[in-house]
């Protein structure tokens, strides 16, 4: 459905900024595909190229078999796009926005109402309110409704859950599940690792490079890393003590604890606790954990950075 090969994009600056660096990607029809990466990883640039808003500098990309540069007008008829920033008309009401986007694609609200019904019903009580006066979650639902009103074959959602509360985020992913059942191919990007597990497959992207593409559970399971969770009241001191210590591959802060990856996959990590306690952190405890997607991402990141440095 979407095919990207050796795609590169640079922004002119001094020195030139590499937004996308030789990217390859294949997305199947009907797939819910996640693009996971931090801010500035190149997610939005990739979206803009695939939605024909930008021209790549190198490489080739096709959507539904059409080239994003030459056949842009064919692609634009069949895709739905929800940019990262709320881009509807703030001074038009909810229903006026929806009507406008329907006529933009030569269709009517009635024609495809079944598709947006579960989403639109939630904002219908506010249909005469101006879009600018909606809450973040409602704006997001309206934007999704507008992106869906012409029954697109492919849906591009650029960070749809950024700045949205936890409950709305959860609801949103349930809606995407529903859309997947309608046969719509969905490409969604997010900086939140916890949302990755909702996708069929995910690509980890960082600094314009794709680190790994796999189903989320596989990404976590494929890791053979020897990972230990460290807890202590003085978490920052612990981080300083452990960072760069022999036998430790990496230390990653995770909220109120540390995830410590050991270089040797067979070594027992309990020595960390003893070592920290000797250094004065008497409350330090450790336990072995299974790596999550975020761990995999961070580990790959640090190893690629070390690779670059050497």
């Amino acid at each position: 459905m979407i095919s990207v090969s050796q795609l590169s994009k640079y922004y002119s600056a001094k020195p030139p900024v590499v937004a996308l660096d030789n990217i390859n990607l294949e997305i199947e029809e009907g797939e819910l595909f996640g693009l996971i990466g931090p801010d500035g990883a190149g997610k939005t640039t990739l979206f803009r190229i695939l939605t024909t808003l930008m021209v790549p500098d190198l490489g080739k990309a096709t959507v539904m078999g059409w080239d994003v540069v030459n056949d842009y007008d064919k692609i634009r008829k069949h895709i739905g796009y929800m940019p990262g920033r709320f881009s509807l008309y703030q001074d038009l009401s909810v229903i006026e926005n929806l009507e406008f986007y329907a006529t933009l694609f030569n269709t009517t609200i009635e024609e495809n109402y079944h598709l947006i019904k579960p989403i639109y019903e939630q904002i219908a009580p506010f249909k005469d309110r101006r879009a600018g006066a909606l809450s973040g979650g409602m704006k997001q639902k309206l934007a999704l409704s507008c992106a869906l009103i012409h029954k697109p074959k492919v849906l591009f959602l650029d960070e749809p859950t950024t700045g949205v509360d936890v409950v709305s985020r959860k609801e949103f992913w349930q809606m995407l599940e529903g859309l997947k059942k309608e046969g719509i191919t969905i490409l969604v990007s997010t900086p939140y690792m916890d949302e990755a597990s909702m996708c069929d497959r995910i690509a980890l992207i960082h600094e314009g490079k794709i680190l790994q593409v796999a189903p989320p559970h596989q990404i976590a399971a494929s890791s053979s890393a020897n990972l230990w969770e460290v807890r202590s009241e003085k978490i920052y001191t612990a981080l300083q003590l452990l960072d760069g210590y022999e036998g430790i591959q990496g230390v990653f802060p995770f909220g109120d604890c540390l995830h410590v990856q050991l270089t040797d996959p067979t070594v027992d990590g309990t020595f960390i606790a003893a070592w920290l306690q000797r250094a004065g952190l008497i409350d330090a405890t450790v336990k072995q954990i299974q790596p999550g997607i975020e761990d995999v991402f961070l580990m790959q990141l640090s190893s690629s950075q070390k690779h670059q440095a050497s």
């Binding site: 939605t51 024909t52 808003l53 007008d73 634009r76 008829k77 895709i79 796009y81 940019p83 920033r85 709320f86 881009s87 509807l88 008309y89 703030q90 986007y101 933009l104 694609f105 030569n106 507008c146």
Partner: peptide, 13 residues
């Protein structure tokens, strides 16, 4: 500036 054009462009108009 507000991004409206981004959405209008991604349409057959």
């Amino acid at each position: 500036e507000l991004g409206n054009m981004e959405l209008v462009l991604v349409s057959p108009t």
